[in-house]
């Protein structure tokens, strides 16, 4: 319980940090960049919207703490302002439209990649120093260094453009209407396959090598030898004794990798014009639509923080040492 509370506390502190970074950044930049933005959009905005934007980005005489309080108040009410690109649609609505696509694509692909990579890592460690281990751990060095978007471009070119095996862009064909029908779902899956493949291929190596190294470390522990001596069968030794322990540091490093993986995955969306938050983030940046950009950043941070929290809870369940509040993921 103590563990859950401390992780929950950390979730809120980091959330607050992300929110504050969002508030501080435009005000910190030399020559408030929002002034330029407002200059560009001035003619299209109502007086009320203009005033709100000025307040949101600190072009006002109000003291900073007051601005901060107002900003927090708006956030609590889910008010993220109006998008300028899609004026006058509220930022919240755009996020609501794009987030499901991202969660579906990036979330699924990341989970597949993690599970698959971990399983292969277990196998490689068990067969340490043999053919597949040597081959795959070296190949992983290269895939780990691949820029996501570049791999996405290549796959797009060869598998979609040259060979027409996959659609070129978007989450579903432009001709059909979204509906809970089989044909629509299949259409969506067909569109998601290539971006998902990109994400899985580029992140698989990291999970794999991480688990492999942890597992090799664990296989050298006394309790493995002791279990082997007392006659525990191979399968049980491999999973219940070795992998079960080796996965703990893997989960800990999840926090470190997730931000990286998500960042790369967002770029994959850009390449495939996939209508998720990553694609919208690029649209916002290109149009200097700062309210939209801020909102998207917050929601991405929130998603990552919550995913991280879920993994920590999982860690707590898997490691009995955290249940007493001692040791654990972040001690």
């Amino acid at each position: 319980m103590k563990y859950v509370l401390s992780r929950l506390g950390f979730l809120f502190i980091s959330l607050w940090a992300a929110v504050t970074v969002n508030f501080v950044l435009p005000r910190l930049m030399p020559g408030n960049p929002a002034i330029l933005m407002l200059g560009r959009y001035k003619g299209q905005l109502t007086a009320q919207a203009l005033h709100a934007l000025k307040l949101q980005f600190g072009i006002t005489k109000q003291p900073l703490w007051q601005q901060y309080v107002i900003y927090l108040g708006h956030l609590l009410h889910g008010n993220l302002g109006l998008s300028l690109t899609y004026y006058p649609i509220p930022v919240g609505q755009i996020i609501a439209q794009s987030l499901p696509w991202t969660l579906g694509l990036v979330g699924t692909a990341t989970i597949i990649s993690m599970v698959l990579g971990t399983a292969v890592g277990v196998y490689l460690a068990w067969n340490h120093g043999q053919f597949w281990d040597n081959l795959l751990s070296t190949v992983a060095m290269f895939t780990a260094a691949l820029p996501y978007f570049w791999l996405a471009l290549l796959l797009l070119y060869f598998l979609a453009y040259v060979y027409h095996w996959f659609p070129l862009a978007h989450a579903y064909s432009t001709g059909i209407n979204p509906a809970w029908s089989l044909s629509f779902i299949l259409n969506v899956l067909r569109h998601a396959l290539l971006p998902a493949l990109t994400i899985v291929v580029s992140s698989l190596g990291g999970w794999m090598v991480g688990m492999r190294n942890n597992m090799i470390q664990t296989l050298g522990e006394d309790y493995i030898t002791f279990a082997e001596a007392k006659g525990v069968k191979k399968r049980r030794l491999m999973f219940q004794y070795a992998a079960r322990n080796a996965i703990l540091p893997s989960l800990t490093s999840f926090a470190m990798s997730l931000g990286f993986v998500v960042g790369g995955a967002l770029l994959t969306e850009v390449v495939f014009s996939y209508p998720g938050v990553g694609y919208q983030l690029l649209v916002a940046v290109q149009n200097e639509d700062y309210p939209l950009m801020q909102g998207l950043f917050l929601v991405i941070a929130l998603a990552v923080l919550i995913a991280n929290f879920i993994v920590e809870m999982l860690y707590g369940r898997l490691d009995p040492r955290t249940r007493q509040g001692q040791g654990g993921a972040y001690s």
Binding site: F226, K230, V232, Q240, N245, D319, P320, R321
Partner: peptide
């Protein structure tokens, strides 16, 4: 270090017997 940190003492004894 001879005992698996994520299993109870009982499970570890049972494993020995059941194997």
């Amino acid at each position: 270090n001879a005992l698996n940190p994520v299993m109870t003492v009982g499970e570890q004894i049972l494993d020995t017997l059941k194997s």
